[in-house]
Amino acid sequence: MKMLLSVFAIIMLIMLILTTILNLVSKKTTYDREKSSPFECGFDPKTHSRLPFSLQFFLIGIIFMIFDIEIAILLPMIYTLKTANALSYMLTTIGFIMILIIGILHEWKQGSLNWTL
């Protein structure tokens, strides 16, 4: 048990030394902080985090996720064409695509796809 604790202590000491050396030798400065800040989301990271954000941006993101996932479901259907009964394959595929078409028409009718600035 003492051997295990001593090895653990040595490992922790090595990690502490390496982390300290890395922080001392690192060329990063406070000026590089802007480069590593998140910019893909469209929010300024230096402002208050509880600012209201566009609900339309959220809805477009959800719609994108739904139709992105449907591609992942449709692609394996090509492989199952070889193993499945043709009639059941066609009914399943047509049913799935009809659900997607009804969903996109519903989103269109609700106005979620209209970009207003």
Rank of each mutant, 00 (worst) to 15 (best):
44 D>P: 01
41 C>N: 15
69 I>M: 10
3 M>G: 10
77 M>Y: 02
56 Q>A: 10
30 T>N: 10
7 V>D: 02
87 L>V: 14
72 A>K: 05
54 S>C: 04
25 V>R: 05
26 S>Q: 03
44 D>M: 04
30 T>I: 14
62 I>Y: 07
42 G>W: 05
64 F>Y: 07
74 L>E: 08
12 M>Q: 03
44 D>C: 06
38 P>D: 03
16 L>H: 01
59 L>M: 13
90 M>D: 04
47 T>I: 09
80 T>N: 06
86 A>P: 01
90 M>F: 13
46 K>A: 11
32 D>E: 15
9 A>N: 02
32 D>C: 02
42 G>Y: 06
47 T>A: 08
4 L>G: 07
30 T>H: 06
90 M>V: 11
28 K>Y: 15
85 N>Y: 04
76 P>A: 03
54 S>F: 00
70 E>F: 07
40 E>G: 10
91 L>T: 10
68 D>Y: 09
82 K>M: 12
84 A>Q: 13
26 S>N: 06
47 T>D: 10
89 Y>C: 03
25 V>I: 13
19 T>Y: 07
42 G>N: 06
20 T>S: 11
88 S>V: 14
21 I>H: 00
48 H>S: 10
87 L>A: 09
66 I>R: 00
24 L>S: 08
5 L>H: 07
42 G>E: 08
44 D>H: 03
56 Q>F: 05
24 L>D: 05
34 E>R: 03
49 S>M: 09
46 K>D: 15
25 V>M: 07
58 F>S: 11
70 E>A: 06
6 S>N: 14
21 I>L: 12
80 T>G: 01
33 R>T: 14
13 L>F: 13
83 T>H: 09
42 G>T: 06
10 I>Q: 02
64 F>N: 10
72 A>N: 11
3 M>F: 14
45 P>V: 03
67 F>P: 02
35 K>T: 11
